[in-house]
């Protein structure tokens, strides 16, 4: 178990996880920043946020994603970026899971209009995988 933990926390593994998750977040953020109205509707579709806050979320969230993604890819403050990304992934996974459980079948909006992922099992487990990667990205590298 300790050997596995040591392997996962290997600096190369942690850096690779940071790069993958960071690039995904930068791409997702850039796709969303171009069309805040669409993001606002996608936020509405989840029925998790109050209506008055949906535009604020749609306005700000992609930029926080972008900053965290850039921090992960380029540094500095990579761990901080990883923590932010992990927080987002936990939130997104919960939101997708809740929508899936309620039988909603809209596009997840994860990559703005470019995304074609419909809420469902595949999108949920895709998010779980990214959440695991984000968890690895947060780990302090062991030498």
């Amino acid at each position: 178990m300790n050997a596995l933990a040591a392997k996962i926390a290997h600096p190369a593994v942690v850096r690779a996880a940071q790069l993958v998750v960071g690039v995904v977040f930068v791409a997702a953020a850039l796709a969303k920043i171009g069309d805040a109205a669409y993001v606002s509707q996608q936020v509405h579709n989840y029925h998790l946020a109050p209506l008055w806050a949906e535009n604020l979320i749609a306005t700000v969230m992609p930029w926080v994603e972008l900053v965290a993604g850039v921090a992960l890819v380029l540094g500095p403050r990579r761990r901080a970026g990883a923590v932010v990304v992990l927080g987002f992934m936990l939130l997104f996974t919960f939101a997708v899971g809740a929508a899936w459980a309620r039988g909603l079948d809209f596009n997840c909006g994860c990559f703005g209009k470019a995304g074609v992922g419909v809420i469902g099992a595949s999108k949920f487990f895709e998010n779980v995988g990214l959440t695991l990667l984000a968890t690895i990205a947060v780990l302090p590298p062991r030498r």
Binding site: A36, S40, L51, W52, E54, N55, L56, T59
Partner: peptide, 8 residues
């Protein structure tokens, strides 16, 4: 841009 507060 988007209105800051969304109204129904």
């Amino acid at each position: 841009g988007l209105p800051w507060i969304k109204t129904e």
